[in-house]
Deep mutational scan, measured.
Amino acid sequence: DVEPGKFYKGVVTRIEKYGAFINLNEQVRGLLRPRDMISLRLENLNVGDEIIVQAIDVRPEKREIDFKYIP
């Protein structure tokens, strides 16, 4: 289970104008929005990159997770 405030290693699987989709595993995916990136820009991410993200909002009923990147 993903818990708000905890850090997780994930893989960038898709990049859109509104953010990057990060997979923690095959069943768990969330969104990293540009506003939640500190010292990292969306255009510097590539599909396949491994990054450490912090879960900031977890909505299991909608199967949605918002992430934050903190270097």
Rank of each mutant, 00 (worst) to 15 (best):
F67Y: 02
F21A: 03
E43S: 13
R41K: 14
G19E: 01
Y69P: 02
R33T: 03
D1V: 15
K62R: 14
G48C: 06
I70T: 12
I52D: 05
E64F: 14
G19V: 05
P60Q: 10
K17H: 14
N23I: 06
A20Y: 04
K68W: 04
R14E: 06
R33Y: 03
S39R: 11
L24R: 00
R41W: 10
K62Q: 12
V47M: 07
D57N: 15
T13S: 13
E3C: 09
G48F: 06
R14M: 09
I51E: 00
M37G: 03
E61W: 05
R59Q: 05
E3H: 14
K68F: 09
E3V: 15
D57I: 11
R41G: 11
F67W: 10
V58H: 07
G48Q: 04
E43G: 10
Y69T: 03
K6W: 08
P60S: 11
F21H: 08
T13C: 07
I70H: 10
K62E: 09
N25F: 09
V11D: 01
L42F: 09
G19L: 03
V28L: 14
D66M: 08
Y69H: 07
P60F: 09
N44F: 11
K62G: 07
E16F: 12
N25C: 09
A20S: 03
V12C: 02
V28E: 07
L42I: 12
D57A: 15
Q54K: 10
I52S: 06
I38L: 12
R33M: 04
D36T: 02
I15Q: 01
D66I: 10
K62P: 06
G5K: 06
E26D: 14
A20Q: 00
R63S: 12
L45I: 11
I70M: 12
R35I: 09
L32Y: 01
R59M: 04
V12W: 02
P60K: 11
D49A: 08
Y8R: 00
R29E: 10
E61V: 10
N23Q: 13
N23Y: 11
I65K: 02
D66C: 06
P60N: 11
D1K: 15
G48H: 05
V2C: 04
E43H: 11
L31K: 03
L45N: 00
E3W: 12
G19H: 04
K68M: 13
M37N: 05
R29T: 12
Q27T: 14
N44D: 15
P71H: 09
Y69V: 05
V2A: 05
E61C: 07
F67H: 02
P34I: 11
V28P: 02
G30P: 01
I51Q: 00
V53W: 02
Q27A: 14
G48D: 05
I56S: 07
N25I: 04
I51M: 06
R63Y: 12
L40Q: 06
N23T: 13
V28S: 08
A55G: 02
A55Q: 02
V28K: 05
A20L: 04
K62M: 12
I70K: 08
V47C: 06
I65N: 02
I56R: 07
R33V: 05
G48Y: 06
F67G: 02
N25G: 11
L40A: 08
G30N: 01
I52G: 02
V53K: 00
L40V: 09
D49I: 06
G30T: 02
E26F: 13
